[in-house]
């Protein structure tokens, strides 16, 4: 891969009160991609994000954003990045426009720059009509859009999003996804944390699955899913004593990768369902083995997560303090 590297994280570690929140984490983010840090609450993804945006100092290792060290060059890093914190980080008493005006001053924009960029951003996130209402009147989705406008205000090279769609309804989530994709298309590198599998799957170009402060696996959603093994065909057999006979017949078929028996049927990993399905059905017919139920599904990110961490992401009770 000869793509330009936007972020270089090497052997990063962070210890809080003797707890290892992040443990020897290394990865690269390429310029112009959407990179996701996926993990349950408390996995360490927010800690990594906070180190990248210079708000936390690592205990060991280093993080570089376009070659700038997150500790030594913190001030220059802050000029390069935009940050979208979780939804609550909004001043209820200020209007949307006032949020942007405040941030324009904190990023040292001139009055002219601010007066051209602020209306543009309000338009981009479709908040023009509500721009002069206090933020306490905003819905969750509108607050999120304001957040994103705030993150984009400094015209950053890298945008960091912390759980961008946490607690949003479905239409708002889809909107936010569109905005994030639009940013990538404008050439902005996006780094986001999420604990939604479908979000990581559909939005991110590459994902790092994080658990217990370590990276369990890293790659594009497709790569990760292929890594688990091919598509899965599940059969339920009417006469349970025929399971073993069918298993040995299916096992020798060319498109079949692996067969696992269950008391009432088979789980079959296949390379290509187009070839494997007819062959499997033919084998069952030949043995006059009646099928009660056929289920076919592509591997989901959930399968990847379970394979890497030994549990489902949904097993975790949501916690408030996600470090």
């Amino acid at each position: 891969m000869s793509r330009a590297v936007a972020i270089e994280v090497s052997h990063l570690g962070k210890v809080y009160d003797k707890v290892r929140a992040v443990d020897d984490v290394s990865f690269q983010v390429y310029a112009g991609e959407i990179f996701g840090l996926l993990g349950p609450n408390g996995a360490g993804k927010s800690t990594i994000l906070r180190i990248l945006i210079t708000l936390l100092h690592p205990t060991s290792g280093s993080a570089r954003i376009f070659g700038l060290d997150s500790v030594k060059d913190a001030d220059r890093v802050r000029k390069t990045i935009g940050y979208v914190p979780q939804e609550r980080a909004i001043d209820r008493f200020l209007t949307g426009r006032e949020h942007l005006e405040l941030l324009a001053d904190l990023h040292h924009l001139s009055a002219e720059e601010a007066s051209t960029r602020i209306p543009q951003l309000l338009k981009l996130v479709e908040l023009e009509a509500q721009a002069d209402r206090p933020a306490k009147t905003y819905s969750g989705g509108m607050k999120r859009k304001l957040d994103i406008a705030c993150g984009l205000l400094p015209d950053p090279k890298v945008l960091f999003l912390d759980e961008p769609t946490l607690g949003l309804d479905v239409p708002s989530r889809l909107r936010i996804w569109d905005h994030v994709r639009a940013m990538r298309d404008r050439g902005i590198t996006v780094v986001m944390t999420t604990n939604y599998l479908d979000e990581a799957d559909q939005l991110c170009d590459r994902i790092a699955i994080i658990d217990g402060g370590r990276i369990k696996t890293l790659g594009s959603p497709t790569e990760l899913k292929v890594g688990v093994g091919g598509d899965l065909v599940s059969l339920t057999v009417r006469e349970h004593d025929r399971v073993d006979t069918l298993a040995s017949a299916v096992n020798i078929l060319p498109a079949v990768r692996a067969v696992k028996t269950r008391p009432n049927g088979l789980d079959i990993r296949v390379d290509s369902p187009e070839k494997a399905l007819p062959a499997i059905l033919e084998a069952a017919n030949r043995l006059t083995c009646q099928l009660e139920f056929i289920d076919y599904h592509r591997p989901r990110l959930d399968d990847v997560f379970i394979a890497q961490t030994g549990r489902s992401i949904k097993d975790d009770q949501p916690k408030d303090d996600d470090q």
């Binding site: 945006i53 210079t54 708000l55 802050r78 914190p85 980080a89 909004i90 941030l103 040292h108 400094p154």
Partner: peptide, 13 residues
């Protein structure tokens, strides 16, 4: 507590 301080502190002030 609501994270606004983090937003302020991530700017080059």
């Amino acid at each position: 507590e609501n994270g606004f301080l983090e937003r302020l502190m991530s700017t080059p002030i």
